[in-house]
Design a protein around this nucleic acid. Structure first.
Lengths: 165, 165
DNA sequence: GCAAATTAATGATTTATTCAAG
DNA sequence: CTTGAATAAATCATTAATTTGC
């Protein structure tokens, strides 16, 4: 019988995972995601306003893509799509993501950044971070959902906030 | 709204988390891990009986450590600890593991084996295999636990058998 | 309504893991 | 096995969004 606090050379340390301390809402069966008018009156701005609040820092992006060369010599500009999502940078990158872009190369990032710079102040590293985070969090979300589904925890699924947003 | 079957690149692999495939008890809140006498009457032999049943095979050990030389010339016999764990070879190596030994060198393996040979029939490759397997399985176990914990599924953890073995 | 308190979202960093080359 | 680059995971930090007590 192993305990929560059991640790052997840093095996499992409760304090290492603050995310886990997250409080769950009370477990209630909510079979159909009926829009409840009491809690949230209207979700108007559901589009994530990300990529707008950008704060400074060191350029980790260039750390990763230190081999940023003229690898676009021949140029595979097959699907540029011009990124014209009505001046919403987030919508633009989400469009790219939806179309399959996951880990854009340094050259791709440069192109995307160039397009987005027409809309607002942005750097390549911001685009880099965005794709990193978006990919990771999409996967995370999917894994959580898959896990619960495979476990058959429909109740947990609904209580966890499943179905909305 | 997302779908069950949605998958993008085979993210979640059930086989990677055999612990999760376990049948779950009905989801009940069990705030304190009270010892349940019905399921597991008594876990007396929780100490792994490994390193006692040794079967033959090719010597992978000598494959890896083909450079077994007198590298112990100067000798860093700082913490020998003599391995006197009351004639239990498994307890002995687990003690070493707990103290930090992960991938012992050929020379270390020879020393350990020499000590263990006082207790029973053993070869260097057995010790080598033990550390290989133990390291791998500890990591595996840790990953499984981390997975559930990081997902924040405490209830699942408990219902999944967390707390017993 | 409103403002403090809480929670969720997300950009930025840091740490760990994977994978290929030597 | 060791090393280094690339990636993924975890975490930190800050802000948006929501809840809650008046």
């Amino acid at each position: 019988m192993w305990m929560v606090g059991y640790s052997e050379g840093g095996e499992f340390n409760m304090a290492d995972y603050p995310l886990c301390g997250r409080k769950l809402r009370p477990l209630m069966s909510r079979p159909v995601p009926i829009p409840v008018p009491t809690t949230s009156p209207n979700n108007t701005s559901t589009i994530t306003p990300s990529l707008n609040r950008i704060h400074g820092g060191n350029d980790l992006f260039s750390q990763y893509h230190h081999n940023l060369q003229q690898q676009a010599s021949v140029g595979d500009h097959s699907k540029r799509s011009e990124l014209n999502n009505n001046n919403n940078p987030s919508a633009a990158v989400e469009e790219l993501y939806r179309r399959g872009t996951r880990t854009p190369s340094a050259e791709q990032i440069q192109q995307i950044t160039a397009q987005l710079r027409k809309i607002g102040k942005i750097e390549g590293k911001n685009v880099f971070y965005w794709f990193q985070n978006h990919k990771a969090r999409e996967r995370q979300k999917r894994r959580r959902q898959m896990f619960l589904v495979k476990m058959g925890f429909w109740r947990v699924l609904f209580s966890v906030g499943f179905g909305e947003k």
